[in-house]
Nucleic acid binder design. Structure first.
Lengths: 354, 354
DNA sequence: TTGTAAGCGTTATCAG
DNA sequence: CTGATAACGCTTACAA
């Protein structure tokens, strides 16, 4: 016989009554308050009764009085992109350990602003923002809210970032080292800092090597598989083709790979492709995607830790401590370029030489 | 000059004071209570002031008094599997429209029980359970909680399901129609109903066609890419190989495809592969995966609607109304089997005949 | 029509 | 060490 009304959740009052102490005492022992000095015997009894009754604290009530919801939001552009999902997952793990819930949300069929709005209504204690251009958000949406930005330097909020510039450089250097000079770039037209830096790093390394990239080989598409497909298709439509291409993320790269194979272009023999992120699928496609690995989960985990520390009152500098390193993962979509030549006829054509 | 303490959120009291009415009146007009009869002028003024002050209701407080948190949980085995992510996304869309937040969580590095525990602590109003064998969960974890199960018939809770039996049958019939008789199955050893039914449907159709499947060709692996890879690798290690294989989900199928291509087996010429789910990646790999499309987002959306209705006090029968239809999507990994013949040289050895 | 007042389940500050 | 008691911000009878 747990309690009177079997359908009502057990409260501290129920426990108090049953244990013969005041409700406040129950709260004292059950709320894990460090400076709560309760007699061992009392504490024991309260805990026993709580256990027996199946008491579970009501987070809503606790949150109301403590002025915190113990929930954080994570805003990303697209949860469908495994990279962002990993960021969320990484954050979720450390948040969960600290007793925080994570409310993830993407802005595919909404806007960052609307999302933030909803998160605020839920009194989230903080938000992690990744890939949606935090700087462009209405300022008041983020006031009186702890925020951490991922992959975006900010004067206003602390953040954590990967070395996106290096990512672009690594891709360029790899392609260059293989002997490629006819290079293309496929990436989104965006103000998202991470993407911009990947692009900048790529072009920087190209410039330093004295390699120019013609305008027609800079393709702007959404950072998705279909974007990559479209870009590659049009790139291949011209007689004058690049021998290597860097894609701003793996989704684009996989789309590009798909389009190339569909067009009968042999990868990497006729075309080398480098992606960025190193999502799991990168090593599932055939040939496996050469890419630049970015520690997504680690980004998410660190962002969460930063947020947690901030919510615990710690003041954290707006400048990110250091950039998380990225590394080139050489796989099957890159190789030395062949001598310039026409493309085969149908399908894979008849390769003349290696 | 919004209010006295610029760092404290605006409350109904602030609005009331500023509008010269009582706090209760503010609540009346702002809480969207239908049977709240407030003078038009008063309502107008309150709304203006609320707007001007930037008032946002505190969901915690509202939830506390209304006895609801306006949040639901979704428990799936693996958010990394795009299928489950779609279920979550589908649920999220309809939940958001109704003002509900969703707390997604997977059981990769946790257990369903632990997750439910955390969700209850947050006073979620209900949960959607998919792919984790709801029937095997400790009963008391789901008491006094509204629940909807996905892809799992239950005496206890209402649910929504796809026609998993048909999915398996469709796969078998397709392979059979192409002329395959030497068939294999790769799927998880699980008590998750959806998986079991896919398997059962497959074997049912096989039996009806008088086709037997030798024990060695029934491979049990985790429902992941690496599981599929492993299974296919060992399947190919034997001289006696199947000509067609049905994989319990697309992740397995993609792993199987990968392993086959890696082993130098040409798909679909030497081996046909059918997956299940039709995740986006299924049409990105080369060759594109033939699969059975399952309406993941629709499942999630309907589950959420069912849950919402339940939370609004509606009594909903435990038996699912009807199964959502699945359909075969013929793509590039299936074709007629070749006449039995040897395999390529290296690796798998030289098979003499089938 | 509007104001008063009683909670919702906690936490936290005080006296005892 | 423990028990009243006052919030937390809001909803909702009920009274004016």
């Amino acid at each position: 016989m747990p309690r009177s009304d079997p359908s009502r959740p057990v409260t501290t009052h129920d426990v108090a009554r049953r244990a013969g102490v005041s409700q406040a005492t129950v709260s004292l022992v059950l709320s894990g308050n460090p400076r709560a000095r309760v007699a061992a015997a009392t504490r024991e009894r309260v805990m026993e009764v709580a256990e027996a009754l199946g008491y579970r604290p009501n987070m809503l009530a606790r949150g109301l009085v403590r002025g915190r919801s113990y929930a954080i939001g994570v805003v990303v552009p697209d949860l469908t992109n495994p990279f962002f999902l990993d960021v969320v997952t990484g954050a979720q793990r450390v948040a969960a350990e600290a007793g925080y819930a994570v409310l993830p949300g993407d802005t595919r069929e909404s806007t960052p602003a609307r999302h933030l709005e909803a998160l605020r209504a839920r009194q989230v204690d903080g938000v992690i923002i990744d890939g949606v251009g935090a700087a462009t958000l209405p300022h008041d949406l983020l006031s009186d809210l702890k925020v951490v930005v991922v992959d975006e330097p900010s004067e206003r909020w602390p953040g954590i970032a990967s070395d996106a510039l290096a990512a672009g450089r690594l891709a360029a250097e790899h392609l260059l080292a293989l002997g490629h000079r006819r290079l293309a770039f496929i990436g989104p037209a965006t103000d998202v800092h991470g993407f911009r830096m990947r692009e900048r790093g790529f072009f920087q390394a190209l410039r330093e090597a004295g390699v120019a990239l013609p305008h027609e080989w800079l393709r702007r598409v959404p950072p998705s598989v279909s974007g990559g497909q479209r870009a590659m298709k049009s790139l291949l439509a011209s007689a004058d083709r690049p021998t290597g291409v860097f894609c701003a993320n793996d989704l684009i790269a996989m789309g590009a790979l798909k389009a190339a194979l569909t067009a009968g272009v042999t990868v990497p023999r006729d075309l080398s492709i480098v992606g960025c992120d190193d999502i799991e699928m990168a090593s599932v496609v055939t040939p496996e995607l050469t890419t630049v690995a970015v520690p997504a989960r680690e980004l998410g985990a660190r962002a969460a830790r930063l947020l947690l520390r901030q919510m615990n009152g710690e003041q954290i500098a707006a400048k990110p401590a250091r950039l998380l390193p990225v590394r080139l993962v050489k796989r099957g979509t890159t190789a030395e370029p062949r001598e310039p030549q026409g493309t085969g006829d149908r399908e894979q054509g008849t390769a003349v030489d290696g």
